[in-house]
């Protein structure tokens, strides 16, 4: 069996908390990926370049968020874990993370 690529795995709570930050930078690549999926079907090989683009972009953003806004990310994900993954309860934490993202991470990508 060949080795699996080693992505840093992020939890669903972390990804949902960082959703708007991810879409700010990686939105176009994600839309392109979904468009390819709709056009070429579910074969993973057909849209491999798009999936690599999505994974590269999102893991970059998540890495930056973890290093620069780690506390907010952690607060958001633990809030989601405590509230049975209901993100409506955790808007406050998400807003704090978004503020941190716009001030510390976003300037790097503009």
């Amino acid at each position: 069996m060949s080795e699996q690529p080693k992505f840093q795995r992020y939890t669903r709570g972390e990804l949902i908390t960082a959703r708007d930050s991810l879409w700010t930078v990686c939105g176009e690549s994600m839309l392109a990926f979904e468009k390819c999926k709709m056009e070429k079907g579910d074969d993973p090989e057909a849209c491999l370049q798009f999936s690599i683009a999505v994974m590269g972009c999102s893991s970059k953003i998540m890495r930056d968020l973890t290093s620069k806004c780690g506390e907010y990310l952690k607060a958001g994900s633990s809030c989601l874990n405590e509230n049975n993954m209901r993100s409506l309860e955790c808007d406050k934490e998400k807003l704090k993370l978004d503020e941190c993202f716009t001030s510390k991470v976003l300037p790097k990508y503009q």
Binding site: S2, E3, M55
Partner: peptide
Amino acid sequence: KRLSMILPILQAENDINFLASS
């Protein structure tokens, strides 16, 4: 709607992991 925003990431990760595995 919020959950669907992270689905492309999960799908892409799943695709890559699947292609990399036997």
